[in-house]
Design a protein around this nucleic acid. Structure first.
Lengths: 186, 186
DNA sequence: TGAGCAAGTAAGCAATGTTAGCATTGCTCA
DNA sequence: TGAGCAATGCTAACATTGCTTACTTGCTCA
């Protein structure tokens, strides 16, 4: 084939380049618009090249979801380390912000296309991500579990309904204010 | 083509048969496993036949989601009509039960593959479905809105985390009990 | 009766995921 | 140094999919 601009035969860091490009396409077109051929084209590589790094399209999506969980984890852990004062509400805000800032990625992380059961790597990443969240509310006591679940479900439901357009912020309404209003509600 | 078993040229009620078969395939394989050709095959009709009734695969998914919202609406309205006592908690239980009993359909209803913005029919169905939910909590006052949102987000978040396998019921735990515990939590 | 229309069929196009086999590169070790 | 080898890229092909176009079929009704 033509050697355009002296492009070297070996790309060098194709796996990471693929992942980065995939994140961009994901943010732009959603998971449905992310195909392996398309991705290869975007990176300037042959259609079969990505298969050296991802066994299938599902494997690519899984890898993306894993990096999503990893980023989510670091965001959560940073907050957990920052001090115990209002840690829960800070985590709630961070949870929502992460989801809204990474909408397509967040959806992919919870997508049914990735059956977490058969993917140990994904399950591990998800468990790590929510481990902090599970413990910040009183560990494993029965009441602590309920408290954690209640906070978690509120935030998660809020995020999902916002992402789906079922809920919209009212004009001038602040998302952080809404979060704390909902969280303070009985 | 071969006229298998004297199959008539015209099917008679193809649209509804397609929808029913699609619901079955959806429940079995999820939205990703639902293709038009596959569906046509399952119903015993040529690959192009479904296009007489649905302009595209997306249109079929939209129709499925609309019927999902309709079923959801009737489930909610039955409860709302049944009496004001503990109406909210009854709706919460029905919400969760519907979602768990119709997992794939519920996911499809909130799928990002269907951008609700550009689909007036879908938006109308969704609005109708959640209209009751929006009003049962005190209508459109500011505090009523927050109360409704708080209840709604808890239930929706619970459902989503359950469907995603992030939360699991503990051995012997009752889902209805969990719902009321979470709902009663501050 | 036969014109017209709704609802099927057949055939084919473009795109995709995936695989098989070949080519090139750079690392390792005698 | 240089021979071999594993990693990583490429080309070519296959099966399958969504979708379109153009032809049939059979029902309805003037």
């Amino acid at each position: 084939m033509l050697a355009l601009l002296n492009a070297p035969y070996h790309h060098g860091d194709l796996r990471n380049v693929l992942l980065e490009a995939a994140l961009i396409i994901l943010a732009r077109d959603g998971a449905a618009g992310l195909g392996l051929r398309d991705l290869a084209r975007a990176v300037g590589v042959s259609p079969a090249a990505p298969y050296r790094h991802f066994n299938s399209r599902a494997a690519l999506l899984e890898a993306l979801a894993v990096t999503g969980f990893q980023r989510f984890t670091t965001a959560m852990n940073e907050l957990a380390a920052s001090g115990p004062v209002d840690r829960l509400s800070a985590m709630s805000r961070a949870y929502v912000r992460f989801a809204l800032d990474n909408a397509a990625l967040f959806r992919l992380m919870f997508s049914s296309e990735l059956k977490r059961d058969n993917r140990p790597g994904l399950r591990r990443a998800a468990d790590a991500a929510f481990g902090t969240l599970r413990q910040v509310n009183g560990g494993d006591t029965a009441t602590g579990r309920i408290a954690a679940l209640s906070a978690w479900t509120r935030v998660h439901g809020l995020v999902m309904l916002l992402l789906d357009g079922q809920i919209a912020l009212q004009p001038g309404e602040d998302i952080d204010a809404l979060i704390s209003q909902i969280s303070d509600q009985h």
